[in-house]
Amino acid sequence: MASYDTTQEYINHHLTNARMCSTEQGIAFNKACEDAGFWVWHIDTLAWSFLLGFGFLFLFYRMGKKATTGVPSKTQALIELIVEFVDDNVRSSFHGKSALIAPLALTIFVWVLLMNLMDLVPVDLLPWIAGLVGQYGFGMDPKDVYMKVVPTTDINTTFALSIGVFVLIIYYSLKIKGIKGFTKELTMQPLNHPIFIPFNFVIESVTLLARPLSLSLRLFGNLYASELIFILIATLGYFQLPLHFTWAVFHILVLPLQAFIFMMLTIVYLSLACEDH
């Protein structure tokens, strides 16, 4: 905090991703990437989300390999608890048969939850460590080292998730209902008359597109806002301590809830896509 000239600068610094792009002079970082347009990579988002994703999958994979059917270890019990929780939700909402939905729901739930939980790491801790590494390891100005640790506050992450879900919605719609059935669903509802086909199509298209959009924007909005509040609280000096604690406790509820909502809506949307009218 002390090393920033203004609060504005502090907040901006904490809300900026570490960027990487390739320019004519080779690979460039951060401010040099301002003109790179689309081909900029948020390396902090990518690194943290990969790390968490691999961590989660590695843990679950190893557990799955040595899972006993006898008395489970504590780790196995926890993992089975999560798996059964996801499985129960899938079973209660999705009535079709699919080998993909349940693992998809599990991946979304645990991955999003882990990425969300990065929000509970003190806002200055990891950027500060990154700044020290940049300063003493690479001789950079700490202010030029960016580190945004919550991948779900990056709209690219949430949209990547929802686009993946959207592709699956389209895929299942076509697979279960066929091209004809899917077209009919888009054009013959809610008013079943040929005159209303354009009207129906507009309404149904909006419905269809609103699903991934709301899915990703909900997660992004919630996490971005909570991150922003954490950062704002961190600018309050000593008053931040009780506020920080309260806000963090509140987010013990919010963060899993957001992960759960994302998973649940994915299941619901896919089950709607699989339902034949």
Binding site: W39, W41, H42, P151, D154, N156, F159, A160, L161
Partner: peptide, 12 residues
């Protein structure tokens, strides 16, 4: 939006 979206999509 930038290339991160593609990276995350592949990762997902």
């Amino acid at each position: 939006f930038n290339a991160t979206l593609i990276g995350q999509l592949i990762a997902f």
